[in-house]
Amino acid sequence: MIILENVSKSYSTGAPAINGASLHIKKGEFVFVVGNSGSGKSTLIKLLLKELNPTEGKITVNGTELSRIKRRKVPKFRRQMGVVFQDFRLLRDRNVYENVAFAQRVIQTPTRVIRKSVPAILSLVGLAEKYKAKPKQLSGGEQQRVAIARALVNNPSILLADEPTGNLDPKNSWEIMKLLEEVNKRGTTVLVVTHNREIVNAMQKRVITMKKGIIISDEEKGGYIYEN
């Protein structure tokens, strides 16, 4: 599903953000990516979304090698993936329903489909009643649920989450992680970047640890390795 072969990414300044990374994530896996600040986790996500291109190496997602995707085909490629960020990135001027529907409108889904799929996904994330609320009327945890709903509404095969609990208290963090686990159980491949040691250690999932752009460990049912 996701294959990295000897991938490196250097920005124009400084040391490479990712340095010779290789990894293989199978369909339906749940993977944590951990590491110190600046270790290259967000860069990895951007590479997977083809927001950035690697300076070296090969990335394959769902059987397609990313360097072979023409610029024009990038939007179509991205529709296989949902993304969630630490800062939610909701549209402030629109309510919950419209924020989720937005993801379908921009890929030209017919309105009659949107009317069914948005309520369905909102009830999955537990926000069916709040569909009319504006983002600022919601708690952080609720906002992140909206963001997850938006990421999932187009039925992506992969969900990428970059520190989805970074702005949340422990209780909400747990709820979001449980939700992501639930999403994974329904068949979506989930990759979560996080700094939350407690949750990583408790959930017993595959853990990929990065340091200065290098994958220093990759363990099934791993734990959070903390180094300085």
Partner: peptide, 10 residues
């Protein structure tokens, strides 16, 4: 930015 990540065409 969000539109692009979701896969909206140019």
């Amino acid at each position: 930015g969000i539109m692009k990540l979701i896969g909206a065409t140019d």
